[in-house]
Design a protein around this nucleic acid. Structure first.
Length: 583
RNA sequence: GGUCCGGUAGUUCAGUUGGUUAGAAUACAUGCCUGUCACGCAUGGGGUCGCGAGUUCGAGUCUCGUCCGGACCGCCA
């Protein structure tokens, strides 16, 4: 070992000991007669002291060292005459007797500090330097802790972790696959898994009744702050269980993580149906850290001569409590916000509850004070409240109102990242109709089982069929989702038929799974959690990038290594691949 | 595929109506300083204003194109 201690552990208890430390030079302060150096490793910072009177040669040497040099120093733990209460080692310093430069370093392109001066792009290019920073290191430490606690919890319950292949068969359903060419089978391709879905179901057929895997998954779709082309799932599956068992088990896991990683005890998770989530929050992943539920106003506001409302499929609003004081400018800002192309609302109507029995609204021409009062009552509004109303086609209005609700939540500081509000969203519809291709798609995936009572409606009223599917949402972020699967070959065939698969197509793509179902598949179901997202939510940030050691940028590039990149002609030839670039 | 924002010193940014030699902070270098801990003080070096074209007597500033980065919509079973 090149060191006897780390830079984070020495205190007054170690006074007088001769120690050897290794680390990076964080900063040096040259006072002329003496010089101080902060030595940093992942455990902390320890101050080194050099004195011109007692050891002039070493002091002169120390003055010449620059940031991020890798040093080994031997010295004596000494009490400081002026202490730093901000760090754990702040009461001591090392009076150095010997320094070895283990490696020199160029001046880094940005400062290795909590508040670095580096921009995102630069930090990604020099990610190995960025990872030296406390903030990013802490995120990865949190991630590690979460993964350990997941394994502890699931292991205790008898789950076993089994690895499944990364080079698998491509299937057209769902996200776009990442494709890997096969050299030995030219013209043929593997796909990287979007999730180990089919393999984990096969493991159930094999009798591993409690499986999990913390596993990388790949989706070739456009990125976001919370979406990477490769990301990590906590993938789980159980046999001989009901939906209730899954919810209990994984609510338990989530609580276990919060207690053991965050020191927070969570209440029982509320549950809401998909239908109600859409009705009250306009989203299947509502942020319930704050109320501000939608109130439907069709019966109160339609038919009074205001065309926009009269012709709307849905008129609904939210109560921004205490915002009646909003100025014209603030209301215009909100209107602009909902009119942005990404939201695309036509406008925003407000009602200010200014004083007892007095309302001011942007639609005073069409509604009496009495009409407005009834609206206020529908919201349980009080004096000082601001009611914001939108109207139009149902889905679009819900979506726009959802964005407005979240925006108001932000403005009113109701979305505190150290508060955690989990909930289960249950009873999803089984299908989703796609106008473009004129066909049904599986809302979850094609192996999701319909509610037993809805099975007779499969072929006749597919849009009314609900699924045994569920999502875990925390603070408006979809953390996990799963379903009870179909384990009956006949029902699976009916499902594929609804999704527009011929028997032959289904057999081609999923034949191995369908065949397996004929050899005694147990009733089973599961769930998968977005591990990166879970960590980001626990860490209280929106972007998952800082919880991934080496993430990709917005365009799917790794700006540090320069991937993706072209490959050589020889490589292409070996694979039997010709590149044609369209313009 | 689309919308919006950004690109100026190593870095983070400012740069007025198009007008003299493009600034600040920080980093870096040098010197001074014996209790600093974001040390302080002084001095200094550091610029293809992303790239290309255009308008103009004159472009960091205006126009078009392009590249790069970020946020979002579509997409993400």
């Amino acid at each position: 070992m090149l060191r006897t201690h780390t830079c984070g552990e020495l205190t007054l208890r170690n006074l007088g000991q001769t120690v050897t430390l290794c680390g990076w030079l964080q900063r040096s302060r040259d006072l002329g007669g003496m010089t101080f150096i902060d030595l940093r490793d992942r455990y902390g910072i320890t101050q080194l002291a050099f004195n011109m009177e007692t050891n002039p040669d070493l002091c002169m040497f120390a003055r010449k060292l620059s940031r991020e040099f890798v040093l080994q120093i031997r010295g004596t733990v000494t009490e400081r005459s002026s202490k730093n209460t901000k760090i754990p080692t702040g009461e001591i310093e090392i009076v150095a007797e010997n320094i070895t430069i283990l490696n020199e370093a160029k001046t880094p392109p940005f400062t290795i500090e909590d508040n670095t001066d580096g921009g995102d792009d630069l930090r990604m290019k020099y990610r190995y330097l960025d990872l030296r920073r406390n903030e990013v290191r802490k995120n990865l430490e949190l991630r590690h802790k979460v993964s350990i606690e997941i394994r502890n919890y699931l292991n205790k319950l008898g789950f076993i972790e089994i690895e499944t292949p990364f080079l698998i068969k491509s299937t057209p359903e769902g996200a776009r696959d990442f494709i890997v060419p096969s050299r030995m089978n030219q013209g043929e391709f593997y796909a990287l898994p979007q999730s180990p879905q089919q393999y984990k179901q096969l493991l159930m057929v094999s009798g591993f009744d409690r499986y999990f895997q913390i596993v990388r998954c790949f989706r070739d779709e456009d990125l976001r702050a919370d979406r990477q082309p490769e990301f990590t799932q906590i993938d789980c599956e159980m046999s001989f269980i009901t939906q209730e068992d899954i919810l209990q088990t994984f609510e338990g896991m989530t609580k276990h993580l919060f207690i053991n990683v965050m020191g927070l005890e969570l209440e029982t998770f509320p549950r809401i149906s998909y239908t109600d989530a859409m009705k009250y929050y306009g989203s299947d992943k509502p942020d319930i850290r704050f109320e501000m539920k939608f109130v439907e106003l069709n019966s109160l506001l339609k038919g009074k001569g205001f065309g926009v409302f009269d012709n709307a499929e849905l008129v609904a609003g939210i109560n921004a409590s205490g915002c009646a004081e909003y100025t014209r400018k603030q209301l215009d800002e909100l209107t602009d916000f909902v009119k942005r192309p990404q939201i695309g609302a036509n406008g925003l109507v407000y009602i200010k509850y200014t004083t007892e029995d007095e309302f001011k609204s942007s639609v005073d021409k069409f509604y009496s004070q009495d009409d407005l009062k009834k609206v206020a009552e529908a919201f349980n509004a009080k004096v000082g409240d601001l009611i914001l109303i939108m109207a139009g086609a149902e889905e679009k209005t819900q979506k726009a109102l959802c964005e407005l609700r979240l925006e108001m939540g932000n403005r009113l500081n109701l979305r505190n990242n150290s508060v955690f509000s989990p909930l289960w969203v249950i009873d999803f519809p089984l299908f989703e109709w796609d106008e473009e291709t004129k066909r049904f798609y599986a809302k979850h995936h094609p192996f999701t089982s319909p509610k037993p009572e809805d099975i007779p409606l499969l072929e006749t009223e597919a849009q009314k069929v609900f699924a045994n599917a569920y999502d875990l949402v925390i603070n408006g972020v979809e953390i996990g989702g799963g379903s009870i699967r179909i384990y009956d070959r006949q029902l699976q065939n009916r499902m594929f038929k609804m999704l527009g698969f011929s028997e032959q197509e289904a057999q081609n793509q999923f034949g191995f799974l369908l065949d397996a179902f004929e050899y005694g598949a147990p009733p089973h179901g599961g769930i998968a959690f977005g591990f990166d997202r879970l960590c980001a939510v626990l860490g209280g940030v929106d972007s998952i990038r800082d919880f991934i050691a080496f993430p990709k940028n917005n365009s799917g590039r790794d700006v540090m290594s320069g991937s993706p990149s072209c490959i050589s002609k020889e490589q292409l030839e070996e694979l039997g691949i010709n590149i044609t670039i369209e313009n």
